[in-house]
Write a protein that binds this DNA or RNA. Structure first.
Lengths: 111, 111
DNA sequence: TCTATATTTCTATAAAAATAGAATCATGGA
DNA sequence: TCCATGATTCTATTTTTATAGAAATATAGA
């Protein structure tokens, strides 16, 4: 993973509404939630919500899948863990730190 | 940790120059690096660098300490781990996931 | 096909963030 | 105290991001 992709992914989280969406989806689990329901839950206007979801999807932080008339968005656990790993890379200045390896465990369990 | 603080911390990372600074400081370790040296290494103008460091310090992602005429900035490992823990909170939708607890190990080893 | 519902795109506007030159402030040595 | 060096603040400008109404698109049931 390179700096640029990490910035995109971090920017996708660094906004009040988007962070709430992400954490809601983390809680919702792999099946995700329909756009309308996300909007209801968080009190966000459809156009605004769509804007933010697009941003998050572009950053690969969320995955979209169509189901009948609904579009379900879910957290992309693997991408999230990739990001966390990148942030803790070279952590502890050479002194080995297990954070990176341990983080990988989440992706394996959730998806 | 609340949403607002997390957004501030994420925004402090979600910028090309700042992410480079952070990763440089993660590598530099607890002793950190002087501002001038950071600027030299990354090729950033003093005023711009100061702007970004202030942003990061405000978000508590870095710590500053004066040493003679130099100001050394270092990564705040504890704050970073707090953020990572927040992001993976409720991960796996109820299915227990060890990521949170394991992350804490880094802070203990680095500071 | 007509209609209701779900979501996105278009558009304009408002708000926030990044950049860097010039001026200022702080520290310590001559 | 004077000067050089290291870092920050001030200022103006440019660029990016967020918001949401209105229009458009998509799906599926009547």
């Amino acid at each position: 993973m390179e700096n640029k992709a990490a910035v995109t992914r971090l920017a996708a989280l660094a906004q009040d509404t988007r962070l709430s969406i992400f954490r809601l989806l983390i809680t919702a689990g792999p099946e995700g939630m329909a756009v309308g329901r996300i909007g209801e839950t968080l009190g966000v206007a459809p156009a605004t919500l769509s804007f933010h979801l697009k941003e998050m999807a572009h950053a690969q932080l969320v995955l979209a899948r169509q189901e009948s008339r609904f579009i379900f968005y879910s957290a992309n656990y693997a991408a999230m863990n990739e990001l966390l790993g990148f942030l803790t890379e070279n952590c502890c200045a050479g002194t080995p730190c297990e954070a990176e390896d341990e983080l990988a465990s989440c992706a394996g369990k959730c998806n």
